[in-house]
């Protein structure tokens, strides 16, 4: 579904990604982790073309992201993305947040889009909040709305960039529960997260990054059981003592 091959990216002289390659097959859940500044966000944003890259190739459902002829908005409309800071549109009601892209991008009718949005809102347990504005919801609630907003586009896969790291601890689980459910339904997911409990539960593989490189790309049992690199070992030790 997602294929990343030998991707490198630099900002001027600063190398952010070096020769990164990995795959996410249909129905798989991949967790990407690594220290701050290792290039996780950059890599995941390359997948839907929010960040350009200089060499290598990425294809999503067979479509090349780096190809200048690719209709990027169209491709992005088929790839859901959830951000660390939710990024709901604060000037729109929750209902409008859920329907605006369905209407303006997919050309759905207003009633159809609203219905679909409300169904997904119900699914993430927030039906009662349809007429509120994002600023009136807690962080965890906003993030669940953001997931529903992405799902409303009927995505073929979902990208998550640290969806719980801006949340108070007591709200993390309500978001992870939604993500676990999504994974169990067979959604293809690429998740940057440090929630190792989530990784253990649903991930097929773990990708560990450091200094712009993919240092490990392993199934979860070998990653947690016996990480090959020293850096991954240190990282795990640090994260698990937290």
């Amino acid at each position: 579904m997602i294929s990343i091959q030998n991707v490198s990216k630099h900002y001027g002289a600063f190398q952010v990604l070096t020769d990164c390659s990995t795959e996410v097959n249909k129905g798989e859940v991949i967790v990407v982790c690594g220290p701050s500044g290792s290039g996780k966000s950059t890599l995941i944003k390359c997948v839907n073309g929010l960040e350009p890259f200089q060499s290598g190739s990425i294809t999503v459902d067979g479509i090349s992201v780096g190809d200048p002829k690719t209709n990027l908005p169209k491709l992005r409309s088929r790839v859901g993305m959830v951000f660390q800071h939710f990024e709901l549109f604060p000037h729109m009601s929750i209902t409008d947040n859920l329907s605006i892209a369905q209407i303006k991008v997919l050309g759905r009718g207003k009633d159809e889009a609203t219905d679909k949005g409300l169904k997904l809102l119900d699914r993430v347990g927030l039906k009662a909040h349809a007429d509120k504005f994002p600023g009136q919801l807690s962080g965890g609630q906003q993030q669940r709305v953001a997931i529903a907003r992405a799902l409303a586009m009927d995505p073929i896969c979902m990208l998550f960039d640290e969806p719980t790291s801006a949340l108070d601890p007591e709200m993390i689980n309500e978001v992870l529960d939604v993500m676990v459910e999504l994974a169990q339904e067979g959604m293809t997911m690429m998740c940057v997260t440090h929630e190792m409990g989530f990784a253990r539960k649903v991930a097929n593989r773990i990708v560990f990054m450091d200094k712009g490189q993919i240092v490990e790309d392993d199934d979860k049992d070998s990653f947690f059981g016996n990480p090959r690199s020293e850096r991954a070992r240190q990282f795990l030790a640090k994260i698990l003592t937290h």
């Binding site: 992005r76 409309s77 859901g80 892209a101």
Partner: peptide, 22 residues
């Protein structure tokens, strides 16, 4: 915030739509 444009783009909006609507 820049993230608003990213979010709009990630939903498939064109630059013009992201500007006008978001």
């Amino acid at each position: 915030p820049k993230g608003q444009i990213s979010a709009a783009s990630a939903l498939g909006m064109s630059y013009a739509q992201a500007m006008r609507l978001v």
